[in-house]
Simulated assay, not measured.
Amino acid sequence: MQDIRNKLKEAEEQISEVEDRLEEIMDAEHKREKRLKTNEESLRELWDNVKRTNICIIGVPEGEEREKGTEKIFQEIIAENFPNMGNEPLIQIQEAQQVPYKINPRRNTPRHIIIKLTKIKDKEKILKAAREKKQVTYKGTPIRLLADFSAETLQSRREWHDILNVMKGKNLQPRLLYPARLSFRFEGEIKTFSDKQKLREFKYSNTKPTLKKIPKRSSLNKKRNVKKKRLQNH
């Protein structure tokens, strides 16, 4: 019996050592994931800062840039859609380029044009005018003027879209702030959230039925999860 007790004690000590080691490993893994997330956020923030004064032009037909140059195309777009800006101080362009093909060089869709301005207020003024006009054109062809973001920020902004649509129907006046924060008016106050978890916490802490109808997660995420499960089953 004494031998059995000694062996049990040794086994318990070994199990305790393994548990301690496992806890150390899990703690180290948690710290590693936290560092990785911090580095990713820093890189994302760096890219967004680099792109802070950029305007992305989508839909200009291929070949126009070779004939006129990207700066000339941008100037023509401004003159065609926002003639009143011609009376204001000249908008200075720091750099203009066409984004190279990354996936399929034979695709029919035109490449995006990136315009880097020297002043962020010029970018904001142009994008505001584009939103108010609703339909921007180049030689009569519909095009789009958008802010240029990192791929991670673009994805974060897309994930707010379904919630934005619901809030618009509830007259909450939602907006997407730079770079990917949701803002809306609720009971006379402006509420701002940087991620969905904080929005969920605010929603569950509030008894108003208007907020209760906001979806728990985006339909985009649901579709992605369904697609993932199908791939796993195959």
Rank of each mutant, 00 (worst) to 15 (best):
Q2E: 09
R5F: 13
R5D: 12
K7A: 14
L8I: 10
K9A: 11
K9C: 04
E13Q: 14
S16P: 02
V18S: 09
V18C: 06
E19I: 15
E19N: 15
L22S: 08
L22Y: 12
I25S: 01
D27L: 13
D27G: 11
R35H: 00
K37A: 13
E40P: 03
S42W: 09
S42D: 08
L43K: 13
L43A: 12
E45W: 05
C56Y: 00
C56V: 06
I58C: 05
G59P: 07
G63T: 02
G63S: 00
E67G: 06
F74E: 05
P83T: 00
N84Q: 13
N84P: 03
M85S: 03
G86S: 09
E88D: 13
L90E: 15
I91A: 08
Q92Y: 05
V99M: 14
Y101H: 08
N104S: 07
R106T: 08
R106V: 01
N108A: 01
N108R: 05
N108F: 00
T109M: 05
H112P: 02
I113C: 03
I114L: 14
I114P: 02
K119W: 02
I120F: 11
I120T: 14
K121I: 10
E124H: 14
L127N: 04
A129G: 03
A130D: 03
R131D: 09
Q135D: 12
K139T: 04
G140I: 07
T141N: 11
I143L: 08
A147Y: 08
F149L: 13
F149Y: 15
S150G: 01
A151Q: 11
A151S: 11
L154I: 11
R158A: 03
E159R: 15
W160S: 05
H161C: 04
H161V: 09
I163R: 09
L164T: 07
K170S: 11
N171R: 14
P174N: 03
P179N: 02
A180H: 10
L182V: 04
F186T: 05
F186S: 05
T192E: 12
F193G: 06
K196Y: 09
Y204N: 07
K208M: 02
K213N: 04
P215M: 07
P215R: 05
S218E: 02
L220I: 11
V226T: 12
